[in-house]
Computed example of a mutant assay.
Amino acid sequence: MVRIIAGARRGRVLAAPSGGTTRPTADRVRQALFDVLAHAPWGGPALLEGAHVLDAFAGTGALGLEALSRGGERAVFFETDRQALTALRANIHACGWEERCTVYPRDVTVPPAARATPATLVFLDPPYHKNLPGTALAALKARGWIAPNAIAVIETGRDEPLPFTDETEGAPACPHELLAERQHGAARLSIWRLA
């Protein structure tokens, strides 16, 4: 069972599609993530309060909805799976946040031009082992979806290399700043300040 952990909609149970297509971030992992966001020297309440959130590969929308519950202003969700979209829309409705949320049923690696305020907080929870974080972020940035110095939270498989790193000798330095990294079971979370 997936639920919102804290804030205005604390305890709200979220719908999740059956089957293995969608892999919602576990409650304990979300709790640990939002603890880091709330208490890190580069984070704190100001990071979430009034944030414009973008939840890419949204699935149930648990990450974006958690951010809204904790003070975020608006959220944009990208998702392509039909069952996940049904659950996502049901979860937005159950929270009463239709006016604060926009859902794009399309591939986040080929987004339309931004029609909303650029996101200050970005969540990417793509399918593991497909090398999607860098592609998605580059596309979102090019189309105006991401604010300067936004914070990006990326979930990958524990055994995947960190996004934006290349151990090849002579590779250019990563323009993004790695702020934190945590491992939880099969998941690895990395938090970045985007250049």
Rank of each mutant, 00 (worst) to 15 (best):
M1Y: 03
V2L: 05
V2H: 00
R3N: 12
I5W: 00
A6Y: 02
A8L: 05
R10T: 04
G11K: 07
R12P: 12
L14C: 04
A15P: 04
A15L: 02
A15D: 01
A16F: 03
S18N: 12
S18C: 07
G20F: 08
T22K: 05
D27Q: 04
D27Y: 00
R28W: 06
V29R: 01
R30W: 00
L33Y: 07
D35P: 09
D35L: 03
D35N: 12
L37W: 00
A40R: 07
A40W: 03
P41K: 07
P41I: 09
W42Q: 02
G43F: 00
G43V: 02
G43D: 03
P45M: 14
A46T: 15
L47I: 03
L47D: 04
A51M: 07
H52K: 11
L54P: 14
D55R: 07
A58W: 11
A58M: 12
G59I: 10
G59Y: 00
L63D: 13
A67M: 14
L68P: 13
G72D: 09
G72K: 13
E73R: 15
F77E: 12
F77I: 10
Q83C: 14
L85V: 07
T86S: 12
A87C: 06
I92K: 05
C95Q: 09
C95G: 08
G96P: 07
W97E: 14
R100I: 05
C101E: 05
T102Q: 15
V103Y: 09
Y104E: 07
Y104W: 15
P105S: 09
R106H: 12
R106W: 08
P112W: 01
A113W: 09
A113M: 06
A114F: 03
R115I: 12
T117K: 08
L121T: 01
L124D: 05
D125K: 01
P127D: 07
Y128E: 08
H129K: 11
L137C: 05
L137M: 06
A139W: 02
A142I: 04
R143M: 08
I146W: 05
P148S: 13
N149C: 09
A150W: 00
I151W: 01
V153D: 03
T156G: 05
T156E: 03
D159L: 13
D159W: 11
E160L: 14
E160A: 10
P161D: 04
L162Y: 02
L162P: 11
F164V: 08
F164T: 06
E167Q: 15
T168R: 09
T168W: 02
E169L: 11
G170C: 05
A171Q: 10
P172H: 02
E177L: 13
L178E: 10
L178F: 06
L178V: 11
E181S: 12
Q183V: 15
Q183L: 12
H184E: 07
H184R: 15
G185D: 06
A187D: 04
A187S: 14
R188P: 08
R188M: 04
L189Y: 04
W192P: 08
R193A: 03
L194S: 10
